[in-house]
Amino acid sequence: MHARLRMERPWEVLIVEDDAQTRAFLARCVDADPRLALAGSVGTRSEALVRLAECATPLDAMLVDLGLPDGSGLDLIAHAAEHRPACESIVVSVFGDESTVLAAIEAGAVGYLHKDAGMPDVAEAVLAVKAGGSPISPGIARRVLARCRAAPAGSRPATGPGVQAPAPRLSQRETEVLELIARGYSYAETARRQGVSLHTVQAHIKSLYAKLAVHSKSEAVYEASRLGLLAPPPR
């Protein structure tokens, strides 16, 4: 299905980045790849919300910086996940540190990108996400595992303000995959050790992303609205 769509048109990418140079660099990266098309390039959260609401063409991906001048990128991600389900959010982070990335995943992001990434890496990140793959660091894998072990799935029914997101329910295979990734193994090595295809491992990770986001979207939205970051839903 991805292949068929890609033949018809390039992926439409929205860039939300307050630093002009980086924004321009990212735009160049998108422009440079024929499989991608630049749907827009904005520097603030409010502009991004307008684009998300008004853009007539379908949006396929959003490269979003978390530290925007008029708010956090997290609520943009949550907003997009809710109103533009087809639009997959990729966080652009300087450090790609665990806390930032995990928060973005919980808000609904499906991937992340380092700001110092090279030009081909940016395009590859978008294409990989659209192809069904999501990156995950060993640190994040370890934290997700630790959360699942500390609170077995289903044991934390309460959600809401001040409550840590409940642990996602992981299958046995997902847990094994996460354990290998937490020990530093690559997707390919993990697939080999598990005797499955690389695509299966990627599917597991994507599924994990979805679980993390489903379980915590309400918290992310609540948190964003509490901080006054969330604009009223577009009419």
């Binding site: 540190d97 665990e98 660091s137 060993p138 640190g139 370890r142 934290r143 937490a182 020990r183 530093g184």
Partner: peptide
């Protein structure tokens, strides 16, 4: 340096995995 803050103290495996990453 930033990762080192997240690695649990004493967890050698996490430290190695992160280095590789």
């Amino acid at each position: 340096s930033i990762d080192a803050m997240s690695v649990p103290p004493g967890d050698v495996v996490a430290l190695l995995a992160n280095l590789r990453h």
